[in-house]
Nucleic acid binder design. Structure first.
Lengths: 182, 182
DNA sequence: TCCCTAAAGCAAAGATCATTGCGTTTACGT
DNA sequence: ACGTAAACGCAATGATCTTTGCTTTAGGGA
């Protein structure tokens, strides 16, 4: 008996192609119509995929959107590492801001917010994990909660409700304020 | 000729009753199933109202949810006025936190977030107007943007993604930090 | 390369949603 | 009180979504 009965998932080839097509279609549609107006048959048609495939993989539209929103930024990209925590945080925040300046990414985040609170869905958990990593690597002088409240939260708020306020001064300003009060 | 041709809207009596019933039904359903899974026929049934009435008044579910989310807190309730800006902000933040600790209110905010970005929908605009009022009344020592970034945004972030972290120390902590760096 | 079967595609049936025309109720101005 | 028309309710229709059983394709281990 092997430890893993190994259901042998098949993630490559055709499945990967379907995933990619669905991903693009969802991003386009969520941006065009808002997450609440995106249906699975719609996505299927634009992706050139059979609706059944989507129903079987995700079940419903909110789950699908939330899942795609969670993995929109590559979770294993390299994080800034200059040796200076403040500099690292600033560059990292800047990355996030630039990412969410893409209307499609912002729209996905709105969809992820809608799905949050239910089950374990939290499309920003990877961002929090990154913050923890950055901070602990540099000795943990700053509590993670502070970074969440005063760097991530303002960015997320602006992405969701006031996306036109995401300018290039924001990252240094937020991180600056984080270090000002200590 | 009167300035307003006065289409003579009818907001009282039966219409008000329908609105109230729909409001309750939406809050319950959004909380139970998430905003993405709430349909108009569903709301109509629970509210004991004809679906057509809802379709005609709001058009679709996201618009309905966003609209109800916007006016969930009475826009003309009295704001704290102790003469001390810091104290006023703390109490005001506390009010908001207590409001969004109600799961139904949090669920509505998630729905509002989903609808944001499209059109003029921004279910938090009244909160920002209140912040502006509080600050300008007391001489405007604190920029409104700072209150948004460091008080509203952290609260909203937690409501959306980590509602169990909304404790009683949050309001004083956030406002305290706002005044610490100056 | 050959199997095994996970995952995709297809098609049909059933459920649910959205729209529209028309009659009824009733809020609001006079 | 009365009249007007706004808002609601009802019912029928067409569109759209969802589910399900079956077939076909092709990923990945032996």
């Amino acid at each position: 008996m092997s430890a893993t009965p190994s259901p042998a998932r098949r993630t490559g080839g055709r499945s990967a192609a379907v995933l990619a097509a669905v991903r693009s279609a969802v991003e386009e549609l969520v941006q065009e119509r808002g997450s609440g107006q995106v249906t699975i048959p719609m996505v299927a048609e634009r992706a050139g995929v059979n609706p059944t495939s989507i129903y079987r993989r995700w079940g419903d539209a909110p789950s699908m959107i939330n899942d795609l929103a969670t993995y929109r930024i590559s979770p294993d990209r390299p994080l800034p590492d200059t040796g200076d925590l403040r500099e690292d945080l600033t560059r990292w925040a800047q990355e996030i801001i630039e990412h969410f300046r893409q209307p499609a990414a912002a729209a996905l985040l709105r969809g992820g917010a809608a799905a949050a609170g239910a089950g374990d869905s939290d499309c920003l958990r990877n961002r929090r994990a990154e913050a923890t990593l950055l901070i602990e690597r540099d000795g943990g002088e700053v509590p993670v909660e502070e970074v969440i409240d005063h760097v991530i939260a303002p960015i997320v708020y602006r992405v969701l409700f006031r996306p036109w306020t995401l300018d290039d001064e924001l990252a240094p300003a937020l991180v600056g304020r984080l270090f000002a009060g200590r």
